[in-house]
Design a protein around this nucleic acid. Structure first.
Lengths: 191, 191
DNA sequence: CGCTTTGCATGATGATCATCATCGTAAAAA
DNA sequence: TTTTTACGATGATGATCATCATGCAAAGCG
């Protein structure tokens, strides 16, 4: 090998990382291979020695995005007493900061809509990520039943939907309303 | 004018109608002008005499999609006693049939993710549609408070999120779980 | 120090994209 | 019947797309 043996793997990782950001912020169709590679100081030629096609990159980027979030969240939640974990997670997920940084945020909310139209490999990677999110959510329910009596899948659907709508809507007030009211619905109702 | 005076308006309406279907089922970026026009037996040339640019079509298609749904729902709900309206709406929205026909379904669920990245005109049309949905939802809450104690914006976010995830996920069982559990959460809890 | 290996660059392919300028033609108006 | 008018067809523009075939140059191995 002409570079040290890790080099190819490192470049591959960089491609995936950059793709996972740009896909989330611009959409998967809007990011071209050549443009993406040039972000890393490379040209489009080498791409196909790393991935069979764009679909393979989408799947890898999807996995990477979920893994990264999962890991980051696990760290944050571990530092918080168990009965505050749900509140911490919800507060973070439904914050304006998360709304305004889709590139660094939840893959499900950023790419869920387009995922429904993709091929099997990508959708499988996406599904695995969603399942991991569900497990994490179920794991930090304060007591039996879950978030204000919701199951994990209901809580996830609500969070994803609220974040998605808060991003799509052009009225800042309505945008905030989606975040705030979802937050309230997810937090334990009593003081 | 060479055709009868309604002709141009009719063609315009057909373009919008077709666009609103194809945008929902294929995504707004994936549908090209030339391809869309050829669906109507026309060529790409005349498009720009109907719309300033593609963005204008997106906004119009968005309005059309919401209007159509709003009208169809209003008809269905009017034929149902007030205390069954919420259940009817939820049952319909979270049905596998709706999941499997995005082209004929909710604009918010199909295009919400991509809407966040579009220009102002489209997002304003989208926002107006969302507001109409919220009003309709608030209007068919069975009693004070709303769907199992949810506000309209929470109910909408949950429905949109559940439908979106049920479409994106590749596991049929998980897909159904999103629909069923969201349904349960939205229906009045007591028998 | 030369050989082999291979990651990446170069460039081509053919397709599609949004947009616009031009023009024929068919229908309405006269 | 003749004139007018504008819808929509044709074709060009320049950009970008995913994908692949070829070739260079550098790094590890001998």
């Amino acid at each position: 090998m002409r570079y040290h043996s890790r080099h190819k793997a490192e470049v591959r990782q960089q491609i995936i990382r950059m793709a996972s950001y740009r896909f989330r912020s611009e959409g998967m169709d809007a990011v071209g291979i050549a443009n993406l590679m040039s972000d890393l100081g490379l040209t489009h030629g080498g791409f196909y020695s790393h991935f069979r096609d764009k679909e393979a990159l989408v799947a890898a980027a999807c996995r990477h995005g979920f893994d990264e979030l999962q890991q980051r969240l696990a760290e944050v939640l571990a530092a918080v007493p168990p009965d505050e974990r749900l509140a911490t997670l919800v507060e973070h997920y439904l914050s304006p900061a998360h709304r305004d940084r889709p590139d660094d945020g939840c893959v499900a909310a950023a790419l869920g809509g387009e995922m429904a139209r993709r091929d099997q490999p990508s959708r499988q990677a996406f599904t695995a990520g969603v399942e991991a999110q569900l497990a994490l959510l179920a794991h930090c329910q304060p007591q039996r039943g879950g978030c204000g009596g919701m199951t994990a899948s209901v809580a996830l659907a609500l969070m994803v939907g609220a974040l998605l709508l808060s991003r799509a809507v052009s009225d800042p007030e309505l945008s905030l309303r989606f975040l705030e009211e979802a937050k309230r619905a997810l937090m334990p109702p009593a003081d």
